[in-house]
Amino acid sequence: MTDDEFDLDLEDLSSAEDFLTYFEIDFDPSVVHVNRLHILQRFHDYLEQVEEMPDSGIARRALYADLLKSAYRDFVVSDAATEKVFRVFRMNEPKSVRVALSDLTERMPDAARL
């Protein structure tokens, strides 16, 4: 497999199922159905952590397969809320803010008459 062939193959993949099938990873469709975006995002995150990408297409394919299998397994043994892949799951709880009534009436003088 050449680098170009591998890159062209990747361009044709569009869904989590496509990726898992291409890399010959057995998967439970019900897990993928619920977590498809989380699995692909985790796979992307794992790829970004690779310091030096292998030169050959065969070595890259093996690395991608291992990382995708790890990403998939993360959601077999856990769930999206626990794994917190997307930023929305990592956001802090809303903070309470107190505003004195006098501060509001100073800014809106007509409000005091209501």
Rank of each mutant, 00 (worst) to 15 (best):
M1L: 11
T2C: 14
T2N: 05
D3E: 10
D3Q: 10
D3P: 06
L8G: 08
L8E: 08
L10Q: 03
L10G: 04
E11L: 06
L13V: 02
L13C: 02
S14E: 15
S14D: 13
S14K: 11
S15R: 08
S15D: 05
S15L: 06
A16S: 03
A16C: 07
E17F: 08
D18P: 02
D18W: 01
F19M: 11
F19K: 08
L20I: 08
L20Q: 11
T21N: 09
I25S: 01
D26C: 05
F27K: 12
F27V: 07
D28Q: 10
D28K: 09
V31I: 03
V32R: 07
N35W: 01
R36G: 05
R36K: 13
L37I: 14
L37T: 08
H38L: 06
I39Y: 05
Q41E: 08
Q41K: 14
Q41Y: 03
R42E: 07
D45Q: 15
D45S: 05
D45M: 11
Y46A: 07
Y46T: 03
Y46H: 11
Y46R: 03
L47R: 09
L47I: 11
L47N: 11
E48Y: 15
Q49C: 12
Q49G: 07
V50G: 05
E51Y: 09
E52Y: 10
P54L: 00
D55E: 11
S56C: 06
G57N: 06
I58R: 07
R60I: 05
R60W: 02
R60H: 00
R61Q: 10
R61F: 04
A62C: 06
L63M: 08
Y64Q: 02
Y64P: 04
D66C: 04
D66Q: 12
D66F: 13
L67F: 00
K69C: 06
S70L: 07
S70R: 01
S70Q: 12
A71M: 01
A71T: 00
R73C: 13
V76C: 03
V76M: 01
V77G: 13
V77T: 09
V77S: 07
S78E: 10
A80L: 03
A81G: 10
A81H: 14
T82C: 14
T82E: 12
E83K: 07
K84S: 02
V85A: 12
V85H: 04
F86A: 08
F86Y: 02
V88C: 14
R90G: 14
R90D: 12
R90V: 15
R90Y: 10
E93W: 09
E93C: 12
P94I: 14
K95N: 15
K95V: 15
V97D: 15
A100D: 15
A100C: 14
S102C: 09
D103S: 09
L104N: 04
L104V: 14
T105C: 12
T105R: 11
E106N: 13
E106Y: 04
R107K: 14
R107N: 14
R107W: 07
M108A: 15
M108F: 13
P109A: 05
D110Y: 02
D110A: 15
A111E: 04
A111T: 06
A112N: 02
R113V: 03
R113N: 08
